[in-house]
């Protein structure tokens, strides 16, 4: 089976020029539009349908950095994706639990206590945003490391594992930020 990088004709790298990718996507979509193959027999038409769907899926997956990482993980190290993840440190889970409890306490609090909790959560949120920024920077570093390793034909598994851990950390923190926003600052609720 050919992968999405091959479908879109770009090198398998984590750092991608997304503007360039968009142009490639539009060009390929035009060229392979199933309507052009309506009169060329059923086989060709069905092939074009399949190709178009691959192009769409490929573009959707590769334009988003997180989906791109997961896709590369699935290609390079499917065993890593299947593996149970214990890489997130217990102290992070504990921290998540504590912050969730603080958010919950806001609901049960009396009016006069609420202000203090809101202030506390605003501070927590600021710290969390900083954490997310740091994680995104680290992920960017990993992007470079991965691409360099691929160029030099070096092993990438360690980089991929680190990336997966970073992504998971980011998921926990993002959920917290969204929950604080939804429960305390009137943001939109997350849908599960």
């Amino acid at each position: 089976m050919i992968n999405y990088f091959q479908v879109l004709g770009i090198p398998k790298k984590l750092s991608i020029d997304t503007t360039g990718l968009e142009k490639i996507y539009h060009d390929l979509s035009k060229k392979n539009h199933p309507d052009f193959f309506l009169n060329q027999g059923e086989d060709k038409y069905l092939d074009a349908l399949e190709t178009s769907s691959q192009i769409n899926q490929g573009y959707k997956t590769l334009k988003d950095p997180l989906a791109r990482i997961n896709y590369i993980l699935a290609l390079d190290a499917p065993q890593l994706l299947a593996e149970k993840d214990n890489s997130v440190a217990p102290d992070l889970l504990m921290k998540v639990m504590e912050i969730q409890e603080t958010i919950e306490s806001y609901h049960d609090a009396e009016e006069k206590e609420k202000e203090a909790i809101v202030n506390e959560l605003a501070e927590i949120k600021e710290d969390l945003n900083e954490d997310v920024n740091n994680i995104l920077n680290d992920i960017n570093e990993m992007f470079k490391k991965y691409d360099e390793a691929v160029e030099k034909n070096e092993d990438t598994i360690e980089t991929l594992m680190k990336m997966k851990t970073l992504l998971h950390k980011r998921n926990y923190i993002n959920t917290l930020i969204h929950t604080i926003d939804a429960e305390v600052f009137g943001g939109e609720k997350i849908k599960h």
Partner: peptide
Amino acid sequence: LVGAPECGDVMKLQIKVNEQGIVEDAKFK
């Protein structure tokens, strides 16, 4: 204490065990 890294959910489950080794009570958050 466990978590789902894909969605960021966290789950704490506790058991209270008596001297006979039976789970007497359990709580979760």
